[in-house]
Each structure stands twice: as C-alpha cells, then as structure tokens.
Design a protein around this nucleic acid. Structure first.
Length: 646
RNA sequence: GCCGGAUUAGCUCAGUCGGUAGAGCAACUGAUUUGUAAUCAGUGGGUCGGCGGUUCAAAUCCGUCAUCCGGCACCA
C-alpha cells in the first residue's frame, strides 16, 4: 500500500472482529448501507471506539464500531433520548410557547424533561402533551445537526429566550462544536450532546407518567422547575408489559399491605411515627430477637442508654452543631435544654468510658437496639421507609488501628450472611467519602478512608463510590436494598469514626502502658428495624415466610360439628409455641379461605369429617390451591422446623 | 423544606351548575351447617381533614393550617 492510499483509507473493526477498509471520513450510515439495505434502514446511531455518535458523523481514523438499532439497550436509550429532547421538548414549546426548557435526559426505562412553565401544569395536562407528541412523532421528520461555536450558540438561544440553555453553554468549557439538532421543515431546534435518531420514524411506544418538581441543577437554592416523566419502549407490547409491572409492584406497597395485614398505622398527630399493631409488633420482635441472637453469637454485648440527655453532651459530641436542625429538643421548667437522641453513639461511648480499658479488652463490641428520633423534612417521610422515630440495630466497635480492617471485614461478612437469610442477594454497596460539612482533621480522614477502602477491596464486593456523601464524622459503607417500585433504601451501614473518640475522650491502655485513643466503628445491619420491615413486606409481597409471619396458621372448620376437634388442635399448637388462629365462624369454607389468604397467613388447615375421622389436617399453603393431608405430629414437627430455621 | 395533586362512612371510592350526602366491601341482627379465594336478607353508621371568609344557602367557591401521595432537595 502506498502512502497516498494509506492517507485515503482507514480500517474499521466490527464487533465480530472482522476488519474492513473504508475511505477516511466515511459516515456510520454508509457503513451500515455497505452491510445491508435493511441494516441501513434499521440503524439509528453508531458506537465508535465506545463513543456514541450520530450516523452522519464522519469517522476519520481506524476504529472499532458497532451499528446500533433500537433492538439494543443502548439503541433504546438513544430512542428515549430523542423522544424527550426532540419530541417532548417540541410538544411543550408548541403548546406552551412561553415555557423555558432546561434539561431532558434519559433514566432507567424512560426519560424526563425539566421545564419552567409560565403557569404550573398538573398531571391532567399530560394527555394533551402526549397527543401533541404523537402528532410530532407521526410526522417522522428527519433530524439534522449543525455545529456552531460558543458565540453563535449563545446568540441562538438568547434570541429564543431559552435562558437555561444559555446558562449551560456559558458554563461549558468547550469553545466550538456545540451540536444543534433540528427537525426538517420545522423551526424547532435544541442544543444536545447527542446522538439522536436519524428520523422520528424510529420512535416507539411511550407514555407520560407524572409531573413533579425539581430544582434547577439539583440545587435547592435555585428555582424549582417542573419535571415531566415518561416511559418509552420499542413496541406497544413492551410498553404495556412495563405498565403492568408497575401496577403489580404497586400492589406490593408496604403501606397498603401493612394496612390489610393489620400490622401498623400512622396518624396525623404523630407524622412519621409508627403505631405498631399486635401482629406488626410481633414481626418487629421476631426480627429483633433474630438479630440479638446473631449478635450474641458474634460477641456483642447489649446495652441500653438514655433517650434524653443534656445539651452539653451533644455539644461535646459535635451533634449540636452539625446535626442540630434535625434534633428534637425539650426544655425543663428550670430552662435546661435536653435533646432526644438522634443517634446512639454518644450514649454508647459513655458506657465504654466507664472504667479503664486495656488493649487486651479490645475489640469491645457494644450493641444497642436504640430508638432514635430525627426531625426529618416533612417531604421526606414515606411509610416505614423514612420515619422520624426508628429503632436501629446499632453497635459500636472500639478497636485498635491494627484491628480496624479485620473488624470491618467481619461486620461486612455478617451483614451479607444476614441478608441471605431474608432472601436478598442483589445488594448494592456504596462507599461514601468526606463531605464538606465535617469534623476532624484531614489526616484523620485520610486514615479512615484508606481503611474502609482497603476493607471493601479485600472483600471483593463490587461497590459504587459516592464522593462527598460521608457522615460528618467519617466515611461509610452503605448496604442498599431496593423496594417494590425500584426505589433504593440504605439499610446496613459501616462507618469509621476517628472523631468521636477524640471529642468524648475514649481511651485504652496499650502494651507500653500509655493512654491511647481507640478507633470507633459504627455499624447497623438492618439499619432501621422499621425500614427493614418495609423492605421485607415488599420483597415478599406480604407473604412472609413462616418463621417471620406473626401468625403461622389458621384452623378453618367446615361446619360447627368439628369445633371441638379444631379447638383441641388449636390449643395443642399454642402449647407447642406455634402462632395459631382458629376460625369457627358459620361461613362457607371458600369465604374463610379467601379472607385468610388476603391477610397472608402462610398455612390454612381445614378441618372436616375426613380429618376428624383420620386424626389429620388438610393443609393449604398460601398462594397454592393444592391440598395435602398430614398427621398432627407431622404437621407440628414441620412447622417447628421451619420456625427454628435461623 | 420546595413544586404539583389529594383529604367524603372502618376500607375503596362516587357526588353534575353552590340548594344540607351515596355505592360496594366491612360491622351489627337474622336465616343458612356449608369441603378449599365472596350464601341470602335486614339494620346502624358522616361536624364531607381543622379554622376563617364569600353567599339567602358551601362537601362544592376563596384563604389558611394540618396530614397524605408523586417527585426534588435532604437523609448520621
């Protein structure tokens, strides 16, 4: 090959490894066309060396490429992106010419657009906007792109009155190659990093789902815009499938199930605080006792500390300054100010500080099922997931710097083994480092961050980094579980604290006979019992496994000839420690079964003539229509085995 | 806290143009004695979230507060 040719040609590598020679400056669409007519038609964008590009972008160097269609995940995302940035945005401008567009990105399963409307819109306006979007999509316009420099871009959007776009351009570090996308035969254009569909014929099925508020640039000091959410799919079938999934997920909502299972309620006089009903409290205690057992086995010592302590202690700990606005306080007649504890650590440390500790005592592991109160912002409250009063399965581990990493690992292993018992496998772990608002010196932070990072790396769990999201006193690991509707909630947590031991003067005597500071690990495994119960209810859709279920079984009679047999059986179960209910009502079996199925009792035992004659029970498990026959002894041993599983 | 929406019987919800409230389920009473997800009939049940205003008249219109819902921000 001569030099001339080398200049003219580039080599394109396809995903399957095939290498093909093309002219320098070839476009993605031309490569697609060279493969097949149908690919040319189906293609929507191209991935060049891992970067998403428009089909009309030129490729000037050797590259590995992938031609994208809406069949792929990334192709689908591009479709959603075009839908929001070109179709939704244009529909909004058509219907509300005075509105200002901010940003319109894609999200999991869909997209949103943030807009400042002259007059606020509500959910009722969505069908109208959706109709306009369909009209625009149906036109199937070609999408063209032009490049402009910063000055030109600023002028374009300034003239249009799009002040948010002007802001974005102003803040951009780039000087040239601002991409402006427009639709042929219309005057609509928008700034975008792309890529976009080549035309609107590729738009699939979509639905606008909700309107919500959102701050400009996500900063609560800025004005609030309105955010329109939508979901989009390749086909109508996919869309309907997704909507049905959402509907099913809504049925798992712990707030609804908690009501129908009679577990708890909330009321106006105590916003964010739970009224636990007998069965809910039973579940609560089952979890608490489970954790108590696990922690005893792991060498923790359980304590209990005051709920209300003097302001001075909270000032000393730093909470008063850093956490004050979230604390409930109370003042006595003598005008002494107390705080209701928002955290258990200062109390726990007072227990550690009693007496002199030797290095031989470490690590000291002190646990407390402490109920904490936090004045959470009203808009944050959400069923059991976000409350103002909750019980933590809290513990504080005091150890030497040498022990720190190993102790963190032991805790992480414990968390994972515990989540396994509840059927959680896909746990997200987040690592958060130093926030802006913090106490302690930077060298202390360096040390604690290093310890936590190396712990998680040794453990081999994949994790995400949340820069600046740590607690004010130290970096943390968070174990995140997902609720039925896909919202993430922090449950377990491991936090290193090199600050509080200093502030509250913890120490131990080392080998050399010197007083030194121990390192403190805060950790919670469920996190909050309330939140964990919320997650559990949604995870199991209310069908709690037998060992957790507040009611193990209900005995249902066919008619009142069998009352005596059923009552004896019920009493026998109770004696065996089985949570049994009995239903002797004069109702049809179907009626009783329906009712007890709705309250999610795991086992229904039906008693009729057959059972009385053969001294058996007819067992129907929740969610199944099969009926099995068991002898009394067999059913008792089965239930007891299941109950004592953990 | 912020934006939008909601609040009517124990629960789920209807209530038109402003004219003093209705259904289903549940509860209660009676009949029915029933074999695996709703037997029939009757009865009772409401300061329409609180307070204020407009009006001859307010569940309905306006204001305000509270709570809840969806997000945002916050989240030790």
């Amino acid at each position: 090959m001569n030099v001339q040719e080398e200049k003219k040609n580039i080599f394109i590598t396809f995903l399957d490894g095939k290498k093909v020679k093309f002219n320098r400056g070839i476009k993605g669409i031309e490569i697609a066309a060279s493969i097949s007519k149908s690919l040319e038609k189906k293609s929507i964008a191209v991935k060049v060396n891992g970067e998403y590009k428009d089909l009309t972008d030129t490729i000037n160097n050797d590259a590995t490429i992938e031609i994208l269609t809406v069949d792929s995940e990334s192709g689908l995302e591009i479709m959603r992106h075009t839908l929001t940035a070109q179709v939704l945005a244009k529909a909004i401008k058509n219907l509300y010419p005075g509105s200002k567009l901010a940003i319109g990105p894609t999200i999991e399963n869909g997209f949103y657009y943030d807009v400042l409307f002259e007059k606020p819109i509500s959910n009722e306006d969505l069908p109208k906007i959706e109709k306009e979007m369909k009209k625009i999509a149906l036109a199937g316009s070609k999408i063209n792109k032009i490049f402009v420099n910063k000055e030109e871009a600023l002028k374009l959007f300034f003239d249009k009155g799009e002040s948010y776009k002007v802001d974005i351009i102003k803040e951009s570090p780039q000087e040239d190659n601002f991409q402006i996308y427009c639709q042929e035969d219309t005057d609509f254009f928008d700034l975008c990093y792309g890529p976009h569909l080549p035309n609107l014929k590729h738009i699939g099925s979509f639905k606008l789902t909700k309107v919500a508020g959102a701050y400009w640039k996500g900063d609560s000091n800025n004005e609030m815009l309105q955010r329109i959410y939508g979901t989009a799919w390749k086909t109508q079938e996919d869309l309907e499938h997704h909507i049905n999934m959402l509907k099913e997920a809504e049925k798992r909502d712990h707030r609804l199930l908690g009501n129908s299972m009679n577990l708890f309620h909330f009321q106006e006089e105590a916003p964010g605080s739970v009224f636990w009903h007998p069965d809910g409290w039973k579940l609560f205690l089952t979890l608490l006792n489970y954790m108590r057992k696990k922690q005893n086995e792991a060498g923790y010592l359980e304590i209990n500390t005051p709920d209300i302590m003097d302001r001075s202690l909270w000032e000393k700990s730093g909470h008063w300054e850093k956490f004050g606005e979230n604390m409930f306080t109370t003042t006595t007649k003598e005008e002494k100010t107390y705080a209701i504890k928002p955290m258990n650590c200062p109390g726990g440390i007072q227990v550690f500080n009693q007496g002199i500790k030797s290095y031989r005592d470490l690590p000291v592991k002190i646990s407390e099922f402490g109920k904490v109160h936090r004045y959470e912002p009203s808009g944050a409250l959400h069923g059991l997931m976000r409350v103002r009063a909750f019980t933590q399965d809290d513990a504080h581990i005091f150890c030497t710097e040498e022990q720190l990493e190993e102790e963190c690992q032991i805790v992480c292993n414990l968390i994972i083994s515990i989540y396994k018992d509840f059927g959680f496998s896909d746990i997200t772990v987040k690592y958060s480092d130093r926030p802006k608002k913090r106490v302690g010196s930077d060298s202390v932070w360096d040390q604690s961050e290093k310890a936590l990072l190396s712990t998680i790396n040794k453990l081999g769990i994949p994790y995400k980094v949340n820069p600046g999201e740590g607690a004010f006193y130290g970096p943390k690991l968070e174990f995140v579980l997902r609720d039925a509707i896909g919202r993430d909630w922090q449950c377990g947590t491991v936090q290193i604290d090199l600050n509080l031991p200093e502030r509250l003067s913890c120490n131990y005597i080392n080998k050399e006979g010197e007083k030194v500071r121990p390192v403190l690990i805060h950790r919670a495994l469920f996190g909050s019992l309330e939140r964990f119960i919320g997650i559990l209810i949604e995870h199991y859709a209310g069908r709690l496994p037998l060992w957790l279920s507040p009611v193990n079984l209900v005995i249902v009679t066919i008619n009142n000839k069998f009352d005596e047999y059923a009552t004896n059986l019920h009493n026998k179960f109770l004696k065996e420690g089985i949570a049994s209910k009995i239903d002797l009502r004069n109702e049809k079996v179907g009626y009783k079964i329906r009712e007890h199925s709705n309250t999610k009792i795991p086992l229904i035992l039906v008693i009729g003539e057959k059972e009385v004659e053969s001294n058996t029970v007819a067992l129907r498990k929740l969610g199944s229509t099969d009926v099995e026959s068991y002898s009394i002894e067999k059913i008792i041993s089965l239930i007891k085995n299941e109950k004592n599983k953990f």
